[in-house]
Amino acid sequence: MNTDLLIIYIRNSRDIYALTEWLQNALLKKVNRGLTPSVEYLANCSTMKKIVRMAAKMLSDQDHKTATKQEKEQAAREHAAYIIGCVEYLSKF
């Protein structure tokens, strides 16, 4: 359940959106140069870890819940897959 809340905070926070957009643009440049992105690689990058930390802090502050390590990892993988999907879509244009 906390994973779903983390995803909601990740997708609806302005500060996190700015980081996501930056990460998406950086990944798009790499894809245009021939890189094939990996969900695991993106889920473990420092920017994604920062995004998940920010969402976990929001979860703690607003819902008074603590996300487990597994929930944070799952949220990072889901968000990484979302970003890769967006990049794949954008790279077609």
Rank of each mutant, 00 (worst) to 15 (best):
L28P: 00
I83Q: 04
W22C: 12
L59H: 07
E21M: 12
L28F: 02
T36F: 10
K65N: 07
K69E: 15
E73H: 09
I51G: 01
H64F: 13
K69A: 14
D15V: 11
A18Q: 14
G34L: 04
A26L: 12
S13R: 07
I16L: 06
G85N: 10
L28Q: 00
R33A: 14
E71K: 10
E73G: 01
G85W: 00
R14D: 05
V39F: 00
A56Y: 00
Y17Q: 11
Y41L: 15
P37G: 05
L27H: 05
A75C: 04
K57S: 14
I51D: 01
Y82C: 01
N32L: 15
K57P: 03
V31Q: 04
V31G: 02
L23V: 09
E21C: 09
A76R: 08
T47Q: 10
N12D: 02
T36L: 12
K50S: 15
N32Q: 14
D15P: 11
N25W: 09
K65D: 04
R77A: 06
I83N: 05
L35Y: 13
L28R: 02
K65H: 07
Q70T: 15
D15I: 12
A81D: 12
I83A: 05
Y17W: 12
E40H: 15
H79F: 10
R11Y: 01
K29E: 15
T66H: 11
K49Y: 06
V31M: 03
I16C: 05
K30E: 06
V52P: 00
G34Q: 03
S13A: 01
E21K: 13
G85E: 05
T36W: 08
A80Y: 00
P37Y: 03
W22E: 15
L35H: 14
Q74F: 13
K49T: 08
S13E: 06
K50W: 08
A18S: 14
I83D: 00
T20C: 08
Q62P: 00
G34C: 03
A56E: 01
A26V: 14
R11F: 05
N12V: 02
S60P: 03
